[in-house]
């Protein structure tokens, strides 16, 4: 986990904790989950870009 994603998670947790309405707390916490998914997918895609670019057989 990068520093920024850790920071983002804390911000969202804090904001969610301040919401009195259950459905609003739910929204921010669900958003946190999607941001984690974004990061995971981003890592995977970067990895795939690296992997596909590194092709010694094409040198």
């Amino acid at each position: 986990m990068t520093e920024q994603s850790e920071w983002l998670r804390q911000q969202i947790d804090q904001l969610a904790g301040q919401q009195e309405k259950f459905t609003e707390r739910a929204f921010w916490l669900a958003l946190k989950k999607v941001t984690a998914e974004q990061e995971r997918r981003s890592d995977q895609l970067s990895g795939e870009v690296d992997g596909r670019t590194w092709r010694p057989d094409h040198w």
């Binding site: 920024q4 983002l8 904001l15 958003l31 941001t35 974004q38 981003s42 970067s46 870009v49």
Partner: peptide, 22 residues
């Protein structure tokens, strides 16, 4: 939070495009 979410989203779009090109 909304702006970081948007940035993440754009970054993902770019990576997807790059990968498609490769």
């Amino acid at each position: 939070i909304a702006s970081v979410f948007d940035q993440n989203r754009e970054q993902l779009d770019q990576l997807t495009d790059t990968l498609a090109m490769i």
